[in-house]
């Protein structure tokens, strides 16, 4: 059902942009669970629209539904770019409800969360194939970027010829290594930042304007 509505809206979007010459680009924020995608989406939304996108949490799979913030107007050097920011659930190939139990979540709730998380990831994959115009791929720079999920996701994004920026997040932490991230994806531009502390956001917005404007 969701897929059908998505399909219909993407068709109407395609036709309407034929006539109006384009709507805001939809930028999907993708990456593994817990990388800081929602924290980033909230920061962007707060900086330019005043309100947030969704809850952030140290519990993985906090975001279990793609959430959108439309018409985010970013002003850079006298020009302005307008984008729709889509915060997506962290992509994974596995979800075990038992992992939620370690975060003091009751079994019933854990099962429900798992179910929502799997639906959310499936939806995010679908969106990636049909409904985004550009991707910000967020990685936790304190973690090993050479994972199969990252490799597959970046490969999928490349195969769609979508513009992509790699964000090396959490640089406020001592263990963060931006170098390791840029080594993992030398074919793409890596932008270091701390979404939580707001470090290096000027460059973040410059790059967003440059890549997705």
């Amino acid at each position: 059902m969701g897929i059908l509505t998505d399909l219909r809206s993407s068709i109407s979007r395609a036709t309407s942009s034929l006539f109006t010459g384009g709507e805001p680009k939809r930028i999907g924020i993708y990456g593994p669970p817990n990388a800081g995608k929602t924290t980033l989406a909230n920061r962007i939304a707060r900086d330019w629209t005043g309100d947030a996108v969704g809850p952030e949490s140290h519990v993985p799979h906090e975001t279990r539904r793609a959430r959108r913030k439309e018409n985010v107007e970013i002003k850079r050097n006298g020009k302005s770019v307008t984008i729709d920011v889509v915060d997506t659930p962290g992509v994974t190939t596995k979800v075990d409800y038992k992992e939620f139990l370690e975060h003091d979540i009751e079994k019933e709730d854990a099962v429900r969360r798992s179910r929502e998380a799997t639906e959310g990831v499936a939806e995010a994959m679908h969106w990636l194939r049909e409904d985004v115009d550009g991707v910000i791929y967020v990685l936790d720079a304190t973690e090993d970027p050479f994972t199969q999920v990252n490799t597959m996701l970046v490969g999928i994004i490349e195969s769609q010829d979508l513009p992509v920026l790699i964000f090396a997040n959490k640089i406020d932490l001592d263990e963060a290594s931006v170098q390791r991230v840029s080594n993992a994806f030398p074919q793409h531009e890596t932008v270091p930042l701390s979404a939580l502390e707001g470090d290096n956001m000027d460059e973040v917005y410059d790059k967003i304007a440059e890549y997705f404007g």
């Binding site: 994974t92 190939t93 596995k94 854990a110 499936a122 994959m125 199969q148 490799t151 993992a184 994806f185």
Partner: peptide, 29 residues
């Protein structure tokens, strides 16, 4: 990935998804 997600059934048959690895490592390698 999408299909795997829809087949995970917590509380059901115990299927929790897949592990996958392939060569060459790192698309950016």
């Amino acid at each position: 990935i999408e299909r795997t997600m829809t087949e995970i059934n917590p509380d059901g048959d115990g299927f929790t998804g897949i592990e996958i690895e392939s060569y060459p490592g790192g698309s950016g390698g």
